[in-house]
Simulated scan of single mutants.
Amino acid sequence: MRIIIALLTIILSGAAFASEPLPWQMLLQPAASPIMEELNWLHNFLLVVSAFIVFVVLALLVYVCIKFNAKANPIPATFSHNVLIEVIWTVVPVIILIAVAIPSFRILRMENEMPPAEITIKVVGYQWYWNYSYPDHGNIGFDSYVIAKDKLKPGQRRLLEVDNRLVIPENTIVKFLITAADVIHSWSVPALGIKTDAVPGRVNEAWTKVTKKGVYYGQCSELCGVDHGFMPIALEVVSKDEFDRWLIQAKSKFVRNDTKIAIDFSYNQRY
């Protein structure tokens, strides 16, 4: 019953959810980028295809159980195969796979063919926090740590809020250069359709163009050690004027410092 109520709430509320994580939330977060809009469409399309396959197979099973049970069909058929049926169950799955493959390849191409970027941001995963830098803007760089539960302010979300948010302007093509300094991490922001591994010694790329202002949350999606669950991502999207003002403040606030703070392993007490 609770699941049904939650589903009805989601359907009726629609876009009012924005990117906010909610209890008993179902389905995907509303899309905030062109890639995620395409992924949402593909998800819904595959849901329809899967439901069609399930209902067809269920109907065939019910038909066989009723039509060919021992009571209704006491004398079993003697044939061993049927050419028409074998052609159908070979051709139909091929058609379904082609129908699924075409939009899948189109979205993969959209993700991999990166348009000319207006802003480049370097993302480095550490155990267990993220480091962000803006090489196009005076090499601004800062660490982003989860906020401990005893320091959360009203309205902030446990295990999702950070001390320094990543800030980008809306309607701007942003390229992310993603890597790691120790073990494999994964930089994932569901509302933007980004989930890219951060691999030591390798730089992976991702891009986005966020069309809606707001704060979008994500988390490391690769098991990276004891504090894996405590390195969230908080990405704040602002207007271009607000971003220019933030850059002025950031250039004086975030001075590059390559000396990293030692990790406190008493995470159970902190979180």
Rank of each mutant, 00 (worst) to 15 (best):
V238M: 01
G201L: 05
K240M: 03
P74G: 05
N139A: 06
I5K: 15
A32M: 04
N112Y: 05
I66R: 15
V100K: 00
F142N: 09
Y267W: 13
K251D: 02
V100Y: 02
A250I: 03
L160E: 01
A51L: 12
R202P: 07
K153D: 01
D241C: 00
T78D: 11
M231W: 12
M231A: 13
V215W: 00
V123S: 11
F243S: 05
H185W: 08
D244V: 09
L223M: 14
I119D: 06
A31N: 02
V94Q: 04
K253F: 01
E222R: 15
G193S: 06
L8C: 11
P103Y: 10
N204L: 10
G138F: 06
L160W: 03
C220S: 05
V54I: 11
V174L: 02
K213R: 12
L177N: 13
V62D: 11
A59V: 07
F265E: 12
Y132D: 07
D163I: 00
F79N: 14
S104L: 12
A77L: 14
I263A: 06
I11S: 05
I96Q: 00
S239I: 03
F265Y: 09
A31Y: 06
L159W: 00
N171Q: 12
M26C: 13
P135Y: 12
S50H: 11
V174Q: 05
